[in-house]
Each structure stands twice: as C-alpha cells, then as structure tokens.
Design a protein around this nucleic acid. Structure first.
Lengths: 242, 242
DNA sequence: CGAAGTCTTGAATTCTATCAATAGGGGTGG
DNA sequence: CCACCCCTATTGATAGAATTCAAGACTTCG
C-alpha cells in the first residue's frame, strides 16, 4: 500500500499581509503569532524555489525532507492510484504550508497549477525549531487540526452532495480563502479537469454545473478562468452552509 | 458555519493487547510507547463510562472538554448538516482514541453503535501531560498525522470509487483494523444505514453491493452481521490497493 | 493565422437513488 | 417455546443523475 500524505493549509490568508514582508526578524505585534511567523525565523535556512506550470514539486513516495511555504501561485496536492485514477486532495495557495505530516514518506504529490514560488525549509531545521519552542508545537497542532477539519468537510462534499452543490461549495471555499466576497472576481488558476478530480466528478459535469449555476443567476462567468459570485445566499444554500 | 471536529484513531489494534491490562503504571518494554500508554498514566483522572446502543456520547457543538479512549464496543463519529443529511466520518473501535483535535468546539457527534465502554480524561489533564512530556507531543503529532492520512484515503474512496469498490475498501479496512485476514469472520457492529452514510451511498446500494460481492465469490455472508472475506486478492483489486 | 489544447454542448449509456413490496431476524409477550 | 410484531435488510421496477462517447466552439500560443 504505497500511501502516504503530507500537507494542508492552515494560516488564514488575511493574516499574511503582515508576514509577507518576510524580514526574518521578530514577529509583528498586535496579532497572534502564526506558524508562518515562526518559519520566517528560519529564513536563513530556507531556499526560495520556482516552478513552472505543471512542474512536479515533490513526488508521492519521496522521503519527506522539507516543509514548504507557498509565496505565489497555486499548488495541487494529489494522489495517484495504482490504476491511474487521480484525486486532488486540495489546492494550496499563497500563505499555505505543506509538508508537516509526520510520515517518513510523502503521501501525495505536489504539482504547480500555475507558476509557483515557494520557500523550502529542511525538515531538520524545523524539527529543531519545534523542539525548542512550545508555541511552534502548539501552532503545529492547530495546523494539523485545521487540516483534519478541512478534510472532514471535504468528505461531506464528496459523500453527500450533488454536482451543483459540490461546485457551489468549491467556489465558496475558494472565495473564502482568497478573502473575496460576493461580486468580486474569482480567479480560477486550475483547469476544469483539476476541479473535476478534486470534486470527484468528470470535466463534462463540472462544465454543466457551471452552466447551470450561471443560468440560475448564482454566478457570472466573464471568461473561462474567472467567476463572479453573484448570489452568495443561493450558493450557500446549495453548499448546505445554512 | 457550525462545523467542528474532534477525533480519529491512531493506535494499531495489535499494539493494544499489552496496554489493555490498564495498570496505570510504567509502560511495557520492548515496543514503542504509544499515546495510549501515556493516557494510562492518567488513569486516576479517567472516568470509565458506559453507553447503550444509539446513545449519544457527545454532541457536535459541545465544548471539547475530554479526550477518550474506547475500551469496548463501536462508536460512530458523525456530522449532521443543516438540511438533515448525515455523514459518518469514521467508526471507532477498542483501542481507538478520540477528542484530540485542537478546536474549542467538537466538530462531530459521537454515538454508540453497539454498547460502548470508554474512559474519558479531562482535557486539562491531558494538556498538562502533553506540556510535560516531549514524547506525548510526538505521539500526538503522529496521531493527528495518521488521522489525516486516513481521512485522505477515505476522500479517495468517496471521490473516485464505485459502489462495489467502496464496499470492498470498507471491508478490507475493517478487517485490517480488527487484525483479521482472509477466511476469518468479520463482525459488522453497524447497520447497513450506517455503512451507507459512511460510504456516501444508500442502504439499497449497500445491500446490492454485498449481494454482488457474494455472487462473485469474493465474500460469504453467513448472516446479516457477519461477513467472511473469501477472496482477498479480488477484494484488494476492487479496492485499488494493488 | 493556424494548430493544439481546453472547454462546452448534445446524445446515449451506465450507475445509483428512489419508490414499493417482500423477506428475514430479534425480541417480547402470551 | 412459539407466535407475533417491529425493525432491518433484500429485491424489483422505475426514475434520475452522472459518465461516456462524440462533435463542435473557444483560447492560447507559436
């Protein structure tokens, strides 16, 4: 059973505007210190890396030697099954972290959806940080807990929802993570195929779901890779969020 | 969004025969010390509780004040959505732990599938234990990581597999957790409806899947609540494990 | 501008859900 | 101990949803 796993996001995007400067010195004041802040303390050990669209960042069975913080672009975290089926566990975006799961091997592959910039920290450095700081450990537990919560939410989507409902859930979550509300333009970095493999549907069904949401007036689709969430209430009802 | 979460198993059932004696003294030697062992050190603070079939152990939005170790019986961990749909995140069995997620509120309800015996430890006691012991913290990270791995595996089942494949995956996992192999009788404590809500199918489809697997010779069904895994190879192929 | 890749739409098929009826099983009371 | 009843599970028929197969439209990029 060649199964492993590795990641998940945890830091609210909204909190990142501060840390984004990435000075490597002491943390911003007036807000909770995040795992991201602590990672910044490791700046000297981090390698800034770039990946082109569709490049592989790490492979499913590679040894887990780094932890990552994404600075720019979108990453897809996926698992390939023996028979070739692919499941996209999650999409990771700027500010998200990955590679924190305790597992000798990585349980998933990470690939660049768009061009990606990230910082890779050696695991041994991070482990030292965790050993010496109670706060880092606490943040790490929160990070994993949040990942688990996200996973359980997605299990509900996959297990209980119909195609249109899944699409609504996906769009709402994406908007939430990008700190967008109704009316804003949502940029979809990923292809329809990526969305399909994330939601457990086919590319055709994704396309039809989008068409259906549009004809109901819930969304606008100015172009293929942008969507406007026009009727948040309708979307939330579909996503069973209220 | 009244969503929370709380639990997951982590300790291999096989490791529990040792700890099962529950003496509360020092740990058995010659094998890794588990989170379960550490919990045993809290014996004096633990309350042994009993629940009848279908009784609620804790509710979705209760404050998270305890961590639990299951001694006997089967627990279902479920989430109820606003519209009434139910998703069973996982079934927990003797030796399994729950309640370790860092979240003020519990993200799921726990209910007794069969009569259940468990020990509840106050969270504050456990937190103290975690504060004072580096090994507890390490085990806790492993526990959460394992939970996340399990969740990701189940996402694949829900996202990619057909009904018969889901049933095969479910039976194999159950057998694995109970330390059973091919030929042994597998006791199903849960109802068809429970299985359906776990696998994202209906009770009728569960029934038909079982019938199909039986008529293919993959399993035997001596009675409604027992199943013999007759052809492990066929089941593993269906479950995409090889 | 052309070509390759991606997305949308349509039609037919397959799978699962739904509706409905029957069968089985466990527990209770006669 | 058996009969009955209720609850659960199975099976059948039909409807609905998503997939598959196929064609055409739109983008993107060389």
């Amino acid at each position: 059973m060649p199964i492993t796993l590795s990641t998940a996001r945890s830091v609210p995007v909204s909190a990142l505007s501060f840390a984004q400067s990435f000075t490597g010195r002491s943390h911003a004041v007036g807000r909770p210190v995040t795992l991201t802040d602590h990672l910044n303390d490791l700046q000297g050990y981090g390698a800034r890396l770039h990946y082109l669209r569709n490049e592989v960042i790490f492979n499913q069975d590679d040894p887990a030697e780094h932890v990552y913080r994404i600075l720019g672009g979108t990453v897809r975290l996926c698992r390939y099954m023996p028979d070739g089926r692919r499941h996209i566990i999650d999409f990771l975006m700027p500010g998200d972290l990955m590679g924190f799961v305790e597992s000798p091997d990585l349980p998933a592959s990470a690939e660049a959806v768009s061009d990606v910039t990230l910082i890779a920290f050696p695991r041994v450095c991070f482990d030292r940080l965790a050993r010496d700081s109670a706060d880092v450990r606490r943040q790490l537990l929160c990070h994993l807990s949040t990942s688990l919560l996200t996973a359980q939410q997605h299990m509900f989507v996959l297990g209980c929802q119909k195609s249109k409902e899944r699409m609504a859930s996906f769009l709402l979550r994406l908007a939430d993570r990008m700190d967008l509300g109704g009316g804003d333009r949502l940029d979809l970095a990923m292809s329809r195929q990526d969305i399909a493999d994330h939601l457990g549907l086919t590319i055709e069904t994704i396309s039809r779901s989008i068409t259906a949401l549009r004809s109901e007036g819930a969304i606008l689709v100015p172009n293929t890779h942008q969507i406007v969430l026009r009727d948040m209430v309708a979307l939330r009802v579909l996503a069973a969020e209220e």
